[in-house]
Nucleic acid binder design. Structure first.
Length: 284
DNA sequence: CGCAGGCCCTGGTAGC
DNA sequence: TGCTACCAGGGCCTGC
């Protein structure tokens, strides 16, 4: 599933593929992809025609293209969204949701999304970042991320540490996979109460979050192709590097105990029962 | 305000 | 074989 590393890989792809080009026309397929654009598809398409792409930006799992009139073409991949490139006239893939044609008649950009949790919107409210992104916290690889402020906020919470890592208003970009991986690296149980963490525990956890994100971005970067605007997150390029997530019944790479899968927050959590002991007062 | 849980969505697969 | 149930889970929304 696309989390920060996958979305960053897509952003880099869009940076090379789309920046500097002018949008000639857009096709929208189906009603769901623009559900966050209340003005509707005609408005969306009308505002995009003739706009030049100025920059490809990202915060957490949101990405957007800044356009030459200071509006933003905002996208979220959800669970299955992909941006793909194709030659004009190539057959439409299943689950094609949007097609962007460019004035240079070169390769087009397609938004493909099987499960339609993803979506697009156009924001021309004039802000530096799209209004829908304002409430999203900085992500931990943003140079402006404030470690001390994060530690303070986290320790004031009264919840489990994994819930907090998945809260995009506290720290963005971390999803189920990299939360489990970072907690495994930090030897921390997902139900550890945030209010029981010492400041040093938070610092250490944050180091593990950054390490796993950096490793995944590096892996995504190596598999990146100039004409294929990666990536669906299911392509598995980082799978071999996962230590706990998806490895139920396999030995912990650190201690050999068998990784467990547990239902938590209506999704699966993977942990090593020896390295990540259940706390005395868990906060589920 | 903080926090928890429901809901949206579809294709693959396990089980009967 | 064909049906049902379950699984993947990010983010918005609601209710307490």
């Amino acid at each position: 599933m696309p989390e920060l590393p996958e979305v960053e890989t897509v952003r880099r792809g869009l940076d090379r593929f789309a920046v500097g080009r002018t949008i000639a026309d857009v096709d929208i397929f189906g009603p769901r992809t623009l559900r966050r654009h209340p003005a509707g598809p005609a408005d969306f398409v009308g505002r995009l025609r003739g706009r030049r792409v100025v920059a490809a930006c990202r915060r957490g799992k949101y990405l957007w293209l800044r356009l030459d009139d200071s509006s933003h073409l905002l996208g979220h991949l959800g669970m299955s969204g992909q941006f793909l490139t194709a030659a004009p006239g190539d057959p439409d893939p299943k689950h094609l949701r949007a097609r962007f044609r460019f004035a240079d008649a070169g390769p087009e950009l397609r938004f493909v999304d099987q499960r339609t949790f993803g979506g697009l919107a156009l924001d021309d409210s004039g802000g530096e970042i799209p209004a829908a992104v304002v409430h999203i916290a900085l992500d931990p690889i943003d140079p402006a991320f404030d470690d001390a402020a994060f530690a303070d906020r986290l320790r004031r919470r009264r919840t489990g540490v994994k819930r907090a890592l998945l809260d995009q208003t506290l720290i963005s970009g971390v999803g189920n996979i990299y939360a489990d991986e970072a907690l495994w690296r930090a030897r921390m149980h997902y139900a550890r109460g945030t209010d029981t963490l010492r400041r040093a525990d938070v610092v250490h956890l944050l180091e593990q979050v950054r390490a796993v994100l950096d490793d995944a971005i590096t892996a995504g970067g190596t598999s990146f192709d100039s004409l294929y605007v990666n990536v669906n997150g299911e392509s598995g390029y980082f799978d071999r590097s996962l230590s706990a997530y998806g490895r139920e019944g396999e030995p912990c790479p650190r201690c050999g105990a068998l990784i467990r899968r547990e239902r938590f927050m209506n999704r699966s959590s993977y942990r090593c029962p020896r390295c990540q002991r259940t706390p005395r007062e868990p906060r589920w």
